[in-house]
Design a protein around this nucleic acid. Sequence first.
DNA 1: GAAGCATCCCGCCACG
DNA 2: CACGTGGCGGGATGCT
Length: 318
Amino acid sequence: MTHRILAVAFPPAQSLDILGPLEVFTAANHLSGKALYQVELAGPEAGALATTAGVDLVAHLKLHPRLKVPDTLLVAGGQGARDAATREDWMASLGALAGAAPRVAAVCTGAFALAATGCLEGRRAVTHWQHCRALACQFPQVKVEEDALFIEDGKFFTSAGVTAGIDLALALLERDQSPELALRVARQLVVYLRRPGGQSQFSAHLVAPTAKSEFHELSQWILEHLAGDLSVEALAERMNMSPRHFARRFRAEMGMGPGEFVQRMRLDEARRCLLDSDQGLGQVAGRCGYPTLEALRLSFQRHLKVSPGEFRARFRTT
DNA sequence: GAAGCATCCCGCCACG
DNA sequence: CACGTGGCGGGATGCT
């Protein structure tokens, strides 16, 4: 039941790449009162692991191809991660773990180490803005996207520099557990669950289907027509499927029913509007597809445990 | 907060 | 018979 997270780092490692996400997951344990996540740290050697912060961390484990496969493999960045890309023995171990793990996340320049194992070939990825070009040059098969906070492609997640790892961890937490818990953790750590500004819509990308999915276009359309009729019947007709068949395929592909998907899109957009615009609550409700202001309130209370007004007041910065 | 109504979801079964 | 598909019923959930 407990989700095992193995962080892998190479000295000198960027300490925040390791500790940021791990603090998110352990805070989730504390706030929920449950052992949701178990975290471990592996380095090229067990024991002291140098960081760029000038102090050492202690790795529980020595990186090895036959380490027990974690539920999530987390590859931290830092100068060491870029240098490690040339160490074939380390990369073989990392590649074995990355291949076997059901989910793999790289923070910052951890993407270099991950790319060196070959498992990012043909996939979209991001890294620290200063190193995006280098990543693209060094690994031409990786589709580097420069302006994303984090990117999901299949089971592989990559995130932008340093603290973007926290954003990524929060997004994973939100998906693993619940938006409520992710919000509580963000508040506990005094960070944004959704960064204000242009990046906030990435939460929608996180649940969006891959480009080749038959529902890719539809999910995009949903995002652009949140105020319209998004009933199962209407969506099914748009896809030229019977409602029953549409709902079944949708669930198989997206991991949730069409109703829930639409609901999450609307909630995401409402949060974004509240943080990024000055529109009144009624206007936000309207453009996000909530029939009444009351519906918006209920949805916020149910899923985020705060009212829309309070949400705006608490998380807005401008 | 309760009640009544709409919508969604999913097991079940029929059809080709 | 296996398989993909579509309709139905009713329990669950959301909305007013």
